[in-house]
Design a protein around this nucleic acid. Structure first.
Lengths: 219, 219
DNA sequence: GTCTATAGATTGATAGAC
DNA sequence: GTCTATCAATCTATAGAC
């Protein structure tokens, strides 16, 4: 009963099962997907799945773990790149949103898990990927504050929540926003990110005028 | 087969069923909840549910429709209040987040539905409540732009996405953020909202200094 | 490794007594 | 309106042939 998700000698059927399960679990959720449906999608028999995975829960966990790989390394590279905080923030925002858009199934899997209050099956995996991205972004913001590039009087964790939230929310609700007339940015995630980072940086950067304008309403 | 969710003469058992179903559906999702489980939670028999609802789907839809009422009216009132765009935005942000925090089950139900790509059972209800809130916020921002209170060169729909996304993301991930050391704002949603509106308004308000500082990186 | 066949439990929904 | 009893379908998981 070795963990086959750790090494590379998986075999063809193994990958087909994992891919089929990832698609179905992401689209419909754990309980709405039967082992029979996964087998059909993978083009094999139901019993064959149990040759690779002891039960449905183990398959689900393997799907989440397998799908989670990749995004982490991608973003770590961005965070460790050289440049001003402004530059890295732009780069991070775009890379993060592209990372989400390139892995729609992973994102839906993770957020399904986060919404779950009854039987969290893979909560740890979901939280871990989440926390690493968050920590990386907070690091970028803190560096910007230490360098005097960004204001020192805002909470970097709150600013990070704003940016990551803007990206995740864009990803989650783009299908709904598309049907809504005043929204024109749904099909250009890059343009969206340039705009939100612009707004955020205007709010986070050193600069007295905007600050003075607000003094009355934010004492 | 009258729609009992429209009028008030529901009766005791009816309300118990709706409450039990709302809790279980929100916690575990549609497919993970059996009619038997709902009956147990409501303290009645399974067959009795079918006296009030023709099938499980109808019960689920009734739960969503019933839970959706209230938040809409609450926010419309805020949007139509008098004051500067800045004031209304502060008010809206706080009211919106409080509205989410006061209805955790409704929010989880709606977002489960939005994540669903396989069998959208109540997509319309979810989208409708979403769109109304979004439209209201865009209206506030546009008014602020027309009055010259806010910059005219940002897309109000993008700014609305930023604010609503910040609130929804806070709600969705507050349990995860709580476990993360640098985060200190989880237990004071009001303080969180004051901070993000502060950051956003600095970025959206008229003011030349911050703008000039960024000219080089945002041509 | 892959299959057919099937066990055993649970599901959504119904029938009919009270 | 509320119940017990039950149906037919479907579910996870296993047994065992090839």
């Amino acid at each position: 009963m070795e963990d086959r998700t750790q090494n590379g000698n998986e075999g063809e059927g193994f990958r087909r099962i994992l891919a089929a399960a990832e698609k179905l679990f992401a689209d419909r959720g754990f309980d709405a997907v039967s082992m029979h449906a996964i087998a059909m999608e993978a083009g094999i028999s139901k019993a064959n799945i149990y040759h690779y995975f002891p039960n449905k829960d183990a398959l689900y966990l393997a799907v989440l773990r397998c799908a989670s790989r990749g995004l982490r390394e991608e973003l770590q590279e961005v965070v460790n790149s050289h440049g001003t905080a402004t530059e890295i923030l732009h780069h991070f925002a775009v890379s993060h949103l592209q990372g989400l858009m390139n892995r729609p199934r992973l994102v839906r899997l993770v957020w399904r898990e986060i919404l779950e209050k009854g039987a969290p099956r893979a909560r740890e995996v979901a939280e871990q990927g989440f926390a690493e991205i968050f920590a990386a972004l907070v690091g970028v913001l803190k560096t910007g504050q230490q360098r005097g590039e960004l204001r020192a009087d805002f909470d970097p964790a709150i600013a990070a929540t704003l940016l990551i939230g803007a990206n995740v929310f864009f990803f989650q609700s783009r299908d709904i926003l598309r049907h809504y007339p005043p929204v024109t940015f749904v099909d250009s995630p890059l343009g969206y990110d340039v705009s939100i980072v612009d707004i955020l940086l205007r709010g986070l950067a050193q600069g007295k005028a905007a600050q003075d304008d607000l003094q009355e309403s934010v004492p």
